[in-house]
């Protein structure tokens, strides 16, 4: 078993994602299709590094010298080869620190997703930036694609602890205004804010010609409300308390949560934003595989 020096980077799972490279790339290309007329324009002569040849690569970029030395096919990578800038916006408010059962918190789940996506993007020479936020931006790592950049991302994720309230909409507006170049915006959050305001923030991104992927992370207990006895619920962000007989309000609660999710689903659908409801009891690698497979199928 490979031992990782990073908390949120699991080589074993990455192994399981072996086929994800292509899948991710194809998917990303799908995204980029909306951004550029030709995804392969912009290859420059400024060489940066090699990468292993994979089926579909333009053989014009094969490094024959490297082939002669190592008997392996390598594609020469150039700075301008990357045609995608990806920003992962990770919610690190206090509500993300919730888990009901023995699984992981929403925040941990989000971190794993962030690390996984960053790794995959970097492998295909896409630039990935990470923004952690609660009611304001906690840290902002500009896009990059080098291993050193990836190391920085992983370590910052490990250092981050969820706290404070959520102010998703205002933060998104702020980021939409800040991120100048068009790119892929991946939002990982429980989206506990006013859906209408958040929808406006999504619109802000869209208006700035970004492509959006919303990964709505929810704990199963938030969706199913499995409580039975009378409990005093304490809001993790405000410490407010509310005594509730779960049996008497469960149906209404599930109805409310469902409406909340459906609201986002609709708002995203209306704006051609990919929306994925993500349960923390679903392994994140499987979730990504499923999503990317669906995405690919939708592109055909």
């Amino acid at each position: 078993m490979a031992v990782s020096p990073y908390k949120y980077f699991e080589p074993d799972r990455m192994g399981r994602l072996r086929n994800l490279n292509l899948l991710a790339r194809q998917a990303v290309e799908g995204f980029i299709t909306g951004l550029h007329r030709s995804p392969h324009k912009g290859f420059s002569v400024e060489f940066t590094e090699h990468r292993e040849y994979t089926s579909g690569d333009d053989i014009r970029h094969l490094d024959w010298v490297a082939y002669a030395r190592s008997d392996r096919y390598y594609i020469k990578q150039y700075e301008q080869e990357t045609n995608l800038r990806c920003y992962i916006l990770l919610d690190c408010s206090a509500s993300m620190n919730y888990r009901y059962g023995a699984g992981m918190t929403k925040f941990d789940y989000g971190c794993y997703l962030t690390a996984c996506l960053a790794y995959l993007m970097s492998r295909q020479q896409d630039m990935v930036g990470v923004v952690a936020f609660d009611e304001k931006v906690r840290f902002h790592i500009p896009p990059g694609s080098t291993p050193a950049h990836l190391d920085r991302v992983f370590r910052r994720l490990e250092e981050t602890r969820p706290s404070n309230k959520t102010a998703v909409a205002s933060t998104f507006h702020e980021l939409a205004a800040t991120i100048a170049k068009r790119g892929l915006i991946v939002i990982i959050s429980d989206l506990y804010d006013d859906p209408d305001e958040i929808a406006k923030a999504f619109q802000h991104f869209v208006w700035k010609r970004h492509q959006l992927l919303v990964l709505h992370v929810m704990d199963p207990a938030e969706l199913d409300f499995p409580f039975k006895k009378i409990l005093s619920f304490v809001d993790m962000e405000t410490d407010e308390k509310l005594q509730v007989d779960p049996r008497s309000v469960r149906d209404a609660y599930v109805e409310e949560v469902t409406a909340f999710i459906e609201k986002y689903r609709k708002e995203c659908g209306d704006r051609s934003i990919d929306y994925v409801l993500t349960r923390t009891d679903t392994p994140y690698d499987r979730m990504l595989l499923n999503y990317l497979a669906r995405r690919k199928a939708a592109m055909r």
């Binding site: 929403k106 506990y192 005093s232 619920f233 809001d235 509310l242 509730v244 008497s248 209404a252």
Partner: peptide, 24 residues
Amino acid sequence: VKAQEVFFPTLRFLKRSMEKTARR
């Protein structure tokens, strides 16, 4: 009833549920 306290991410849905079910 002295109910046990338990953390929950947000009370927004519970509050609305309570309001909706108050009469019932």
